[in-house]
C-alpha cells in the first residue's frame, strides 16, 4: 500500500517521504517540514490519534487522515483532533490527489489572510461582518453569522457538529446536534440554498458541515 501510494503521488509530481511508525512521522515532519501529511490511523506502536495529537502543534502541515474504519465517529475524532480532512480506504490515486490539492489551496488562502471568503455568488466579508448573495445583503442573526463565519474560516474543510457547538455556543454549551442542524437550515433559507442540493453549505453525513469552495 505504502509503495503504491508513494509511486502514485510521485507520478503526480509530489515529493514523497514515507515512514512506518508514528514516532518516525513526528521526527521526519520536524526535520523535513512537509506541506501535507497523510496519516494512516492503523499504525503499529503509537496509535494514529496519539500521533495526530503530537503532530498538530509541531507542524503547520495539513494532515489528511487515511482510515479503513467504516465508523463516522473516527472521522469526527480525527477532525476534532486537528486533522484537515480524511479519506476512507480504498480510494484511487486521482481522488487522493484531488484532496491533497484542496488542502494545499486552503493553506494558501489562509496564508494570504484574505478577509473576504467567496463561494459562488456568496460573499462573506469577515472584516465588515457582512454577508451577501448576488451582491444583495443577507441579514443573519448573531448565532447564524457566528456559525457561517466559523465555516468560512475553515472553508472547504469538514467541521464537526461538536466543534460548531463549542465555537458558536461556547466552551460549555450543552447542545444538541439538532441545534446546529436547525441553524444551518435557517442560514440556507436566507441564502436561498437548497438543502437537498446545496451550493454553499454541504452536509457531511455523520460528521458535520462544510462550506463549499
Amino acid at each position: 500500500m505504502q509503495r503504491a501510494l508513494r509511486a502514485g503521488l510521485q507520478y503526480h509530481d509530489f515529493d514523497v517521504r514515507a515512514v512506518g511508525t508514528g514516532e518516525e512521522a513526528i521526527r521526519e515532519s520536524a526535520a523535513w517540514r512537509p506541506d501535507v501529511i497523510l496519516l494512516d490511523l492503523g499504525l503499529p506502536g503509537m496509535d494514529g490519534f496519539a500521533t495526530l495529537r503530537a503532530l498538530r502543534p509541531a507542524t503547520r502541515a495539513a494532515v489528511i487522515v487515511v482510515s479503513v474504519m467504516p465508523g463516522e465517529k473516527d472521522k469526527v475524532r480525527a477532525l476534532d483532533a486537528g486533522a484537515d480532512d480524511y479519506v476512507v480506504k480504498p480510494f484511487g490515486t486521482e481522488e487522493l490527489v484531488a484532496r491533497i490539492r484542496a488542502v494545499l489551496r486552503r493553506q494558501a488562502d489562509v496564508t494570504i489572510g484574505e478577509p473576504v471568503v467567496r463561494t459562488g455568488d456568496l460573499e462573506i466579508d469577515l472584516g465588515r461582518r457582512h454577508v451577501s448573495v448576488h451582491g444583495e445583503t443577507v441579514r443573519l442573526t448573531p448565532t447564524e453569522y457566528e456559525l457561517l463565519r466559523y465555516l468560512a474560516l475553515h472553508a472547504g474543510k469538514p467541521v464537526s457538529h461538536t466543534t460548531l457547538l463549542r465555537q458558536v455556543w461556547g466552551e460549555y454549551a450543552v447542545g444538541d446536534k439538532y441545534n446546529t442542524r436547525y441553524v444551518v437550515a435557517q442560514i440556507r433559507k436566507k441564502l436561498g440554498d437548497d438543502p437537498a442540493n446545496p451550493k454553499y453549505i454541504v452536509n457531511e453525513p455523520g460528521v458535520g458541515y462544510r462550506l463549499e469552495t
Binding site: Y11, H12, G92, T93, E94
Partner: peptide, 14 residues
C-alpha cells in the same frame, strides 16, 4: 485498498 492504490498509480500518464 492496496490493489486500488497500485492500479490507479499505474494509470497515471507519467
Amino acid at each position: 485498498a492496496a490493489l486500488r492504490a497500485g492500479l490507479t498509480a499505474l494509470t497515471a500518464p507519467r
